[in-house]
């Protein structure tokens, strides 16, 4: 499954990056969203994929005896998801504010801070 997952991750990265490189500001945000999905899945895969053994200690036991999914990457991803959400929410509102203030959704028109000498 890791092989398939690696292709899924690669595909997500490729499309995320491609979208980010577009000039439309909305696509930029969509790209960022895909990128964060891709990163999360990447960490998930790095913890090795395990089917049907969630990292829960069953009632009555004091420890897990069988092999379970690695809980650490899951915790990391949870953190990353939430952080990603915060950043994305900011980015989404930012592009809206950009469009309202600058009157364009074309990133190439947002160049005044870099105007060539």
């Amino acid at each position: 499954m890791e092989v398939v997952m690696s292709f899924v991750i690669g595909g997500l990265y490729a499309s995320g990056l491609y979208l980010m490189m577009r000039r439309n500001i909305l696509k930029l945000v969509l790209g960022i969203a895909l990128l964060s999905h891709a990163a999360n899945l990447l960490i998930f895969t790095m913890g090795r994929l395990t089917r049907g053994h969630p990292p829960l200690i069953p009632p009555g036991e004091v420890r897990v005896l069988e092999s379970i999914a690695d809980p650490l990457p899951e915790a990391l991803i949870l953190t990353a998801i939430v952080i990603g959400f915060g950043v994305q929410a900011f980015a989404i509102v930012l592009i809206r504010r950009c469009f309202e203030t600058l009157g364009t959704d074309d990133l190439d028109e947002m160049r005044s801070t870099d105007r060539a000498p």
């Binding site: 890791e2 092989v3 997952m5 690696s6 292709f7 991750i9 690669g10 595909g11 997500l12 990265y13 490729a14 499309s15 990056l17 891709a38 990447l42 895969t45 790095m46």
Partner: peptide, 10 residues
């Protein structure tokens, strides 16, 4: 870039 990531994961 995506291909590279795939390779890296593998």
């Amino acid at each position: 870039a995506g291909g590279l990531i795939t390779a890296l994961v593998l």
